[in-house]
Computed example of a mutant assay.
Amino acid sequence: MPKTHQHYANTTPARRMKQAAKIGRNTAILVERLMRDRPHPQQGYRAAQGVLSLARRYGSERLEAACDRALTINALSYSSVSTILKSGLDQASPVAEPVKPAPAHGNIRGSSYYQ
Protein backbone atom coordinates (compact mmCIF):
# COMPACT_ATOMS: atom_id res chain seq x y z
CA MET A 1 0.00 0.00 0.00
CA PRO A 2 1.43 3.44 -0.88
CA LYS A 3 2.52 5.64 2.03
CA THR A 4 -0.20 8.17 1.22
CA HIS A 5 -2.81 5.43 1.73
CA GLN A 6 -1.31 3.75 4.79
CA HIS A 7 -2.71 6.46 7.04
CA TYR A 8 -6.25 5.38 6.16
CA ALA A 9 -5.58 1.66 6.65
CA ASN A 10 -5.94 1.91 10.43
CA THR A 11 -9.10 4.01 10.26
CA THR A 12 -12.59 2.59 10.63
CA PRO A 13 -15.99 4.17 9.97
CA ALA A 14 -16.80 3.79 13.67
CA ARG A 15 -13.74 5.84 14.61
CA ARG A 16 -14.73 8.67 12.24
CA MET A 17 -18.27 8.56 13.59
CA LYS A 18 -17.01 8.79 17.16
CA GLN A 19 -14.90 11.85 16.31
CA ALA A 20 -17.86 13.49 14.56
CA ALA A 21 -20.25 12.74 17.44
CA LYS A 22 -17.95 14.69 19.78
CA ILE A 23 -18.59 17.77 17.65
CA GLY A 24 -22.34 17.34 17.34
CA ARG A 25 -25.31 15.42 16.01
CA ASN A 26 -25.44 17.08 12.57
CA THR A 27 -21.72 16.58 12.03
CA ALA A 28 -22.10 12.89 12.88
CA ILE A 29 -24.98 12.54 10.41
CA LEU A 30 -23.04 14.30 7.64
CA VAL A 31 -19.89 12.20 8.19
CA GLU A 32 -21.98 9.03 8.26
CA ARG A 33 -23.64 10.00 4.96
CA LEU A 34 -20.27 10.84 3.38
CA MET A 35 -19.14 7.29 4.01
CA ARG A 36 -22.47 5.53 3.45
CA ASP A 37 -23.27 7.10 0.08
CA ARG A 38 -20.11 5.73 -1.52
CA PRO A 39 -19.67 2.16 -2.81
CA HIS A 40 -16.98 1.56 -0.17
CA PRO A 41 -16.79 3.49 3.15
CA GLN A 42 -13.04 3.93 2.66
CA GLN A 43 -13.76 6.24 -0.27
CA GLY A 44 -15.38 8.71 2.12
CA TYR A 45 -12.57 8.77 4.71
CA ARG A 46 -10.74 11.70 3.16
CA ALA A 47 -13.86 13.85 2.84
CA ALA A 48 -14.91 12.93 6.37
CA GLN A 49 -11.48 13.80 7.74
CA GLY A 50 -11.60 17.10 5.86
CA VAL A 51 -14.94 17.98 7.44
CA LEU A 52 -13.65 17.06 10.89
CA SER A 53 -10.52 19.17 10.38
CA LEU A 54 -12.66 22.26 9.78
CA ALA A 55 -13.44 22.26 13.52
CA ARG A 56 -9.85 23.34 14.26
CA ARG A 57 -10.14 26.37 12.00
CA TYR A 58 -13.73 27.45 12.62
CA GLY A 59 -14.69 25.85 15.94
CA SER A 60 -17.10 23.08 16.79
CA GLU A 61 -20.20 25.29 17.05
CA ARG A 62 -19.76 26.81 13.59
CA LEU A 63 -18.98 23.41 12.06
CA GLU A 64 -22.11 21.96 13.63
CA ALA A 65 -24.21 24.83 12.22
CA ALA A 66 -22.61 24.44 8.79
CA CYS A 67 -23.32 20.70 8.79
CA ASP A 68 -26.93 21.42 9.73
CA ARG A 69 -27.26 23.80 6.81
CA ALA A 70 -25.54 21.35 4.43
CA LEU A 71 -27.94 18.60 5.45
CA THR A 72 -30.90 20.93 5.01
CA ILE A 73 -29.95 21.83 1.44
CA ASN A 74 -28.64 18.32 0.68
CA ALA A 75 -25.11 19.56 -0.09
CA LEU A 76 -23.19 16.57 1.21
CA SER A 77 -19.54 17.21 0.44
CA TYR A 78 -16.46 18.64 2.08
CA SER A 79 -16.38 21.54 -0.38
CA SER A 80 -19.99 22.49 0.39
CA VAL A 81 -19.39 22.58 4.14
CA SER A 82 -16.16 24.52 3.63
CA THR A 83 -17.91 27.07 1.40
CA ILE A 84 -20.71 27.50 3.94
CA LEU A 85 -18.13 28.29 6.61
CA LYS A 86 -16.02 30.59 4.40
CA SER A 87 -19.03 32.64 3.34
CA GLY A 88 -20.49 32.78 6.86
CA LEU A 89 -23.77 31.14 5.88
CA ASP A 90 -23.62 29.05 9.05
CA GLN A 91 -24.16 32.26 11.03
CA ALA A 92 -26.91 33.59 8.73
CA SER A 93 -30.60 33.08 9.23
CA PRO A 94 -32.00 29.60 8.53
CA VAL A 95 -32.61 28.48 4.98
CA ALA A 96 -35.62 30.30 3.50
CA GLU A 97 -38.86 28.42 3.25
CA PRO A 98 -39.95 27.20 -0.18
CA VAL A 99 -41.66 29.66 -2.48
CA LYS A 100 -45.44 29.43 -2.40
CA PRO A 101 -47.15 28.37 -5.64
CA ALA A 102 -48.51 31.07 -7.90
CA PRO A 103 -52.17 31.96 -7.38
CA ALA A 104 -54.75 30.78 -9.90
CA HIS A 105 -55.06 33.22 -12.77
CA GLY A 106 -56.42 33.08 -16.32
CA ASN A 107 -53.01 33.76 -17.89
CA ILE A 108 -51.25 30.94 -16.02
CA ARG A 109 -51.50 27.67 -17.91
CA GLY A 110 -50.45 25.25 -15.18
CA SER A 111 -48.87 21.81 -15.40
CA SER A 112 -51.81 20.18 -17.21
CA TYR A 113 -51.16 22.38 -20.28
CA TYR A 114 -47.75 20.76 -20.88
CA GLN A 115 -48.92 17.14 -20.92
Rank of each mutant, 00 (worst) to 15 (best):
E64W: 03
V99C: 06
S111W: 05
T72C: 14
L71K: 13
H7A: 02
R38W: 02
Y113L: 01
R62Y: 07
P13C: 02
S77R: 13
P98G: 07
I108W: 12
D37S: 08
R56K: 12
S93D: 10
A70F: 07
Y45R: 01
R25I: 14
E32Y: 06
T12K: 02
Q91C: 08
R36T: 13
Q6R: 05
L54I: 03
G106S: 08
L54T: 03
V99T: 11
A96Y: 01
Y8L: 15
I108R: 15
M17C: 03
N107A: 11
A66S: 03
I84Q: 08
Y114N: 09
S111M: 10
H7Y: 11
Q49T: 12
R69F: 12
I73L: 14
S112E: 15
L76P: 00
L76S: 02
N107K: 12
S82G: 11
Y58V: 04
A9K: 10
T11I: 15
I84E: 04
A75P: 01
L63S: 09
L30G: 01
R38E: 12
D37E: 13
A92H: 14
R15M: 10
A66E: 05
T12F: 01
T4S: 15
R109W: 09
G106D: 15
N107C: 06
L34W: 13
D90Q: 08
I23L: 08
A70W: 03
H7S: 02
I73R: 15
A21S: 11
G88P: 09
Y58E: 02
P13Y: 06
K86M: 12
N26F: 13
T11V: 15
I29P: 00
P94M: 11
K100L: 11
A48Y: 05
G50P: 01
L34F: 09
S87G: 09
S60Y: 06
P39C: 13
P103I: 05
P98E: 14
